[in-house]
Design a protein around this nucleic acid. Structure first.
Length: 216
DNA sequence: ATCCCGAGGG
DNA sequence: CCCTCTGGAT
C-alpha cells in the first residue's frame, strides 16, 4: 500500500470512529493546560489529573504561581515524574509569562519555547489545542504509532515525524490527528506489546503487514 | 524490567 | 549526539 493511501485510510477511519478526540488532561483555561502539559512529561494523564485540582486551587493564575517558592510548588507535584525539575520550570514559566507576555499564554511556537519547561512538543500542543493552529505535537506515542502505521518512513527524530505528518495530513485534520495517534498508542498500539489482535486498523498498518502477513 | 502526551544541559 | 531528572503503575 502506498503511503498516501495509508494517510487516506487513517483519516477515513478515525474521522468516522473518533471525530471528537481530545486531550484527557483536565483544565479550564490556557494557563491550566500549559501547566498540565508541562507536568505530563513521562507521566500518565490520569496521574496529572489527580494532582492538578489542588494545584490549580492554590495557583489559579500565572501571578500566584510566579510569586510562589519552588519548594511549595514541589509539595503539590511530588508524586509526578521529575518533580524537582518541573517545580522549577513551573515557577520560571509563570514568571516569564507575567514579565514578558502580560500573563497571557502566547500563540507563536517561537514565543512558547522561550518559557522554561516548554519544548517543541508542549508548544505544539498549546498552539493546536488553544489556538486551533495546524501544529503537530510529536510525543512518544505519535512518534511510535506514525512509524508503525507507515505514515512516516525513515523518520528518526520527532521533528522529522512532525514535518512529514504536517506535510501529508489534510490541514484541517492535523490538530485532531495528534489525539487520534496518542489515543491509539495509549490503548491499542502499546510500546512493548501492541494489541494487534484487537486493533481495528491493521488493514492499512505497515507494522502489521510486516509482522503478521505471510509473504512468500 | 519497562513504560508513561519531555526538557535542559553537556 | 548523549545524559540526567525521577515517581508510580503494570
Amino acid at each position: 500500500m502506498l503511503k498516501q493511501e495509508r494517510y487516506q485510510e487513517f483519516v477515513n477511519y478515525f474521522s468516522t470512529h473518533n471525530p471528537d478526540a481530545q486531550t484527557e488532561l483536565n483544565y479550564s483555561n490556557p494557563y491550566e493546560l500549559l501547566v498540565a502539559v508541562i507536568l505530563s512529561a513521562q507521566c500518565t494523564d490520569k496521574r496529572i489529573n489527580q494532582i492538578t485540582p489542588a494545584l490549580f486551587e492554590r495557583y489559579p493564575d500565572p501571578e500566584t504561581l510566579a510569586a510562589s517558592s519552588v519548594d511549595e510548588v514541589f509539595s503539590y507535584i511530588r508524586s509526578v515524574s521529575y518533580p524537582n525539575n518541573k517545580a522549577k520550570h513551573l515557577v520560571g514559566m509563570a514568571q516569564k509569562l507575567c514579565d514578558e507576555f502580560k500573563g497571557i499564554v502566547p500563540e507563536k511556537i517561537e514565543d512558547l519555547v522561550k518559557l522554561p519547561g516548554v519544548g517543541r512538543k508542549t508548544a505544539n500542543v498549546i498552539s493546536s489545542v488553544v489556538y486551533n493552529n495546524p501544529a503537530m505535537a510529536v510525543d512518544t506515542h505519535v512518534f511510535r504509532v506514525s512509524n508503525r502505521l507507515g505514515l512516516t518512513s525513515r523518520a528518526t527524530t520527532p521533528l522529522a515525524v512532525e514535518k512529514q505528518l504536517v506535510k501529508f495530513l489534510p490541514k484541517e485534520t492535523i490538530a485532531i490527528a495528534h489525539h487520534w495517534l496518542i489515543l491509539h498508542g495509549r490503548y491499542i498500539c502499546l510500546a512493548r506489546k501492541p494489541k494487534c489482535e484487537i486493533c481495528p486498523i491493521t488493514y492499512f498498518c505497515k507494522y502489521f503487514e510486516k509482522t503478521h502477513k505471510v509473504v512468500g
